[in-house]
């Protein structure tokens, strides 16, 4: 069904760790059907202008300066999970408080309502014809990748491995991280439980998991893996330098790779032309701008100019 403007009711808004939250947006009636088949990587634009800020003493020190800014634009968020019941669809969003809009979002309570435009953009393509799916995520890029891992349950014959990275333990948007590392056959994260996904955690500072960039672990894994390159699909979401490195590895190993990008967006529906992504124009050596909102946010890594 077509995208549109809808009202969602907050089902829950739960804090995870220092600055991460999971919010459940409930849709009922016609909008429940619209959102019932959202794909990992798709997103919504949420109007947070009418949500109130948390009380002064609940605003983290580093955000006090920007908290009071008067926001006017919606904010784009991709999904981390979906639950479909009869007449009700709940989409979950994993987010981090970084400024005046996400702070307002963190103050929403169950029963509150927000205006939502969506579902928008194109999600990840499924790994048809592949035997192995490698999922690479950095920080808040976890959302769409967790959503994807859940979707990939429909492909039981495919081996799934997630490479989970962040700067430090507190930048990992997962619950109960400390007691999950070093379990037999890789690390264990509750968010990936039941998805049949082997997980490897790394942090830049070594505060949890192995020390180093998540892309180093991906690279080492590929070097020792005997899987045919054409049977692998890499999916990645996270900071742009991480995505650039993943794309580089995929290209050098001749592996198909999809990346989910992030851009400043005013509208999310192709009106404002703000969210330009520089892409290769065929083999011409020239580049063109595609729009992250309509042409993405998921792109084939080989077409993006990083």
């Amino acid at each position: 069904m077509a995208k549109g403007s809808f009202t969602a009711t907050i089902g829950y808004n739960k804090r995870i760790g220092k600055s991460f939250y999971k919010i459940g947006l409930e849709f009922s009636g016609a909008s429940a059907e619209v959102f019932a088949d959202v794909k990992p990587g798709q997103f919504v634009e949420i109007d947070l202008c009418h949500a109130s800020l948390p009380a002064d003493n609940k605003i983290p020190g580093e955000l006090c300066d920007s908290a009071g800014r008067n926001i006017i634009l919606r904010r784009p968020f991709s999904f981390s999970d979906i639950a479909v019941e009869k007449g009700k669809t709940t989409v979950e969003i994993l987010y981090c408080t970084v400024g005046p809009a996400s702070l307002r979002m963190s103050n929403l309570e169950a029963g509150d309502s927000v205006s939502v435009i969506g579902p928008l953009g194109n999600g990840f393509g499924m790994p048809e014809g592949k035997t192995t799916a490698l999922l690479v995520l950095g920080g808040t890029g976890a959302g769409p990748i967790i959503h994807l891992a859940k979707q990939l349950k429909n492909y039981p014959q495919i081996q799934k491995i997630a490479f989970v990275g962040a700067r430090s333990v507190e930048d990992l948007p997962f619950e109960k991280i400390a007691d999950c590392i070093g379990a037999e056959g890789g690390d264990y994260l509750a968010e990936f439980s039941g998805t049949d996904t082997q997980t490897f955690v790394s942090t830049d500072d070594g505060s949890v998991g192995s020390k180093g960039f998540v892309t180093d672990i991906l690279y080492r894994y590929l070097k020792q893996s005997g899987v045919e390159r054409r049977e692998i699909m890499v999916y990645a979401c996270g900071p742009e330098p991480m995505l650039a490195r993943v794309a580089q590895i995929a290209e050098s190993e001749n592996i198909d790779c999809q990346v989910s990008l992030e851009r400043r967006m005013a509208c999310g529906i192709g009106l404002c032309q703000s969210c330009a992504v520089e892409c290769k124009a065929g083999d011409s050596g020239q580049s063109i701008y595609k729009m992250c909102c309509k042409d993405g946010p998921v792109f084939d890594a080989s077409e993006v100019v990083f």
């Binding site: 926001i71 634009l73 330009a276």
Partner: peptide, 11 residues
């Protein structure tokens, strides 16, 4: 016209 590089907007 390709337009400008990003960021193209700021609130």
């Amino acid at each position: 016209r390709k337009g400008n590089p990003t960021p193209r907007i700021v609130e």
